[in-house]
Amino acid sequence: MTPDEFVALLRDHWPRTLAELDPAAREELATALRRLADSTEPQAAQAALRTLRRILRALPDAHPVTRALRDGVRFAGTAGTAGTAGTADAPVLDRQPLLALLSSLHGPPPPDPVRARLLAAPALPADALGAATGNPGLIRLRHPELGDRYPLFQFEAGTGRPLPVVGVINRLLMADRDPWGAADWWLGGNRRLGGVPAELLGAVPDARLTLAARELVEGDH
Rank of each mutant, 00 (worst) to 15 (best):
T2G: 14
R11N: 08
T17D: 05
E20F: 04
L21Q: 00
D22I: 05
D22R: 08
P23S: 03
A25P: 03
E27K: 13
E28L: 11
T31D: 04
A32C: 02
L33K: 02
Q43G: 00
T51R: 14
T51S: 06
R53T: 13
R54G: 12
R54P: 01
L59Q: 06
L59R: 07
P60Q: 08
D61N: 11
V65H: 11
T66D: 00
T66K: 14
A76W: 13
G77E: 08
T78D: 05
T78V: 11
T78W: 05
G83D: 03
A85M: 09
G86Q: 06
A90P: 05
V92Y: 11
D94A: 15
P97I: 04
L99E: 14
L99V: 11
A100W: 04
H106E: 14
H106M: 13
G107L: 04
P108Y: 03
D112V: 00
V114R: 11
P125K: 07
A126V: 08
T133Y: 11
N135L: 04
L138E: 00
H143E: 01
H143I: 09
H143M: 09
P144T: 07
P144K: 06
E145Y: 10
G147L: 07
G147P: 07
F153R: 05
F155I: 06
A157G: 05
G160E: 08
L163S: 04
I169G: 03
R171L: 15
R171N: 14
D184F: 10
D184L: 12
L187F: 09
G188S: 15
G188I: 10
G189C: 01
L193H: 02
V196A: 09
A198K: 10
L200W: 10
L201S: 07
G202F: 06
V204K: 01
D206E: 14
R208N: 10
T210G: 03
L211H: 12
V217Y: 06
E218N: 08
H221R: 14
